[in-house]
Design a binder for these strands. Structure first.
Length: 312
DNA sequence: AACGCGTGGCT
DNA sequence: TAGCCAAGCGT
């Protein structure tokens, strides 16, 4: 006996699922992974063109492993959180070096790779391999919070109890479980949205605790506080990275231009230290540029290793 | 465990 | 209009 939410949401999904390219028949586990990493905290419409170009250029981990950090960061463009791009590259190197070029298919193996956490590992298992997992992203959490708890929004942090309950809803067999994960996510993305849910179009409106209670507002709304944006280090990091991505000929941006992009000296020092530590930039004389090569140790290709004590 | 990490569209 | 929000992860 499936959970009462399952049959109507699966049926709804059959009629309303989007034809996203990473769901197409020619998808690979790697292409699914790339989509999941790009989609972390990033809207689908923004990911689409970048994912397509990325797939054409680096269809698998072996191709990506051969790319330089500067190429990868430019291809990432304005998706945001550029550390994700480096982690994906790092992930490709690890797959090539330690897994024979084949992405692990189990959650533990996936989670051991850089940039792959609980959600992404579960998503690859379900969406790339069609096997059972418990996908718990913000969409799924919101649907379950509303339908089962009568809460407007999920809590700030995922709890063990929430995982257990979500697992109890996932059907036992692989095929249905994989479909359920995609379906409930899709419902959260298209109908049971955070801002303006379309309850009149919802397949489980007749069994939703939140709707039954008259859609009460989020009780925890005041507790959620967002970090500001204007003038923050985060904004300054973004400005410096945009400057370097757009540097003509992949060249170096002179110190004066960096100062113009981030005028406050203390902030500039903090931001540059952070970017250097994250391997998102490297110094070139007095200027700055995107890092040229993979920073990890070990030979991935036949490229010769530079001599050991190379002076800077 | 709470925090830092990009970007741009929407209301 | 200025928050709010979008398929999280690592530390």
């Amino acid at each position: 006996m499936p959970h009462p939410l399952v049959p109507p949401i699966l049926h709804w999904f059959d009629a309303h699922r989007r034809d996203l390219p990473w769901r197409a028949a020619d998808r690979t586990p790697w292409s699914v992974l790339v989509s999941e990493v790009m989609l972390q905290q990033t809207p689908v419409v923004r990911v689409l063109p970048v994912w397509r170009a990325w797939q054409e250029r680096w269809p698998g981990p072996a191709e990506l492993a051969g790319a330089g950090h500067d190429e990868v960061l430019r291809a990432w463009g304005r998706l945001g959180y550029p550390r994700r791009a480096l982690r994906l590259h790092d992930c490709a190197l690890t797959v090539v070096e330690r897994h024979g070029g084949v992405l692990p298919a189990d959650e533990a193996g996936l989670r051991s790779l850089p940039g792959i956490g609980e959600y992404t590992a579960a998503a690859v298992v379900a969406f790339a391999h069609g096997r059972r997992s418990v996908v718990l992203d913000t969409n799924v959490r919101r649907v379950l919070a509303r339908a089962l708890d009568g809460a407007a929004l999920p809590t700030a942090h995922l709890t063990a109890g929430e995982r257990t309950r979500a697992a109890a809803v996932v059907p036992p067999d692989d095929a249905s479980a994989a479909r359920w994960n995609a379906a409930v996510m899709e419902l959260g993305a298209l109908v049971c949205t955070a801002r303006a849910p379309a309850c009149t179009s919802c397949p489980v409106a007749d069994r939703c605790a939140w709707l039954a209670e008259g859609r009460p507002p989020d009780a925890l709304a005041q507790r959620r506080r967002r970090q500001g944006w204007h003038g923050t280090d985060r904004q300054a990091r973004g400005a410096v990275m945009a400057l370097l991505r757009e540097a003509v000929g992949g060249g170096t941006v002179e110190a004066a231009a960096v100062e113009a992009a981030c005028p406050d000296a203390d902030q500039r020092e903090r931001v540059l230290a952070g970017l250097l530590a994250d391997h998102l930039v490297e110094r070139n004389g007095d200027g700055l540029r995107l890092p040229r090569g993979p920073h990890l140790q070990g030979a991935r290709t036949a490229a010769p290793t530079p001599p050991a004590a190379a002076p800077r």
